[in-house]
């Protein structure tokens, strides 16, 4: 096992740890399909669980990964207590995607990249997504509002999300490639 750096080990500040990583954990849980209020609780549980034991901070990436793991276990435990089935292969796939996309600890970068990508969508597509995600409108209602068929509304939103994914992919170039390009 690689020996952690001294500075990383000695400067752990628990509340700074919470401050730094809580947003990322919350967003990660939400991506896993966790309800927002449950995500609130599980974020608290994660830090309370982790910080009750001796904890060593090796690096931000390692700590973030460890915290996500703990949060995920808590989420799965909760679902099992509820008697729900948890599709683990899907969870692993989302975790991998998260690892690939969310480069920082909080997800702020992805948040802002996505915001930028939204600007590149057509107004109709943005309007459809807004009705879907903010106003919780049904596909039929969206279709009626935009004067298109229900199938058309579905296609519109699918294409918009695909465009967003592609846009995020193109903007989230790994830093290695950037440096080697020079």
């Amino acid at each position: 096992m690689e020996k952690p750096s001294t500075s990383a080990n000695t400067e752990l500040d628990p509340l700074l740890l919470v401050d730094t990583f809580q947003t990322g954990i919350w967003r990660y849980l939400r991506a896993m399909g966790c309800e927002s209020s449950l995500a609130d609780d599980l974020v608290q549980d994660t830090f309370v669980t982790v910080l009750q034991k001796p904890f060593e901070h090796y690096s931000d990436a390692a700590t973030a990964s460890y915290l996500r793991k703990v949060a995920l276990n808590l989420f799965i435990s909760f679902k099992r207590r509820e008697g729900r089935v948890v599709a683990t292969e899907n969870i692993e796939a989302i975790s991998d995607a998260w690892q690939q996309w969310v480069k920082d600890d909080s997800g702020d970068d992805l948040f802002f990249t996505l915001n930028q990508c939204l600007e590149e969508l057509t107004e109709r597509a943005r309007w459809a997504l807004k009705m879907r995600f903010r106003e919780k409108r049904s596909r039929l209602e969206i279709a009626q509002s935009l004067k298109i068929t229900e199938h058309g509304a579905k296609n519109l939103m699918q294409r918009a999300k695909k465009q967003l994914r592609d846009c995020v992919e193109s903007k989230s170039q790994p830093p290695d490639e950037k440096t080697t390009r020079n």
Partner: peptide
Amino acid sequence: PKKHIIDAF
């Protein structure tokens, strides 16, 4: 899987 992340954000 990325759809879930996009949806959450």
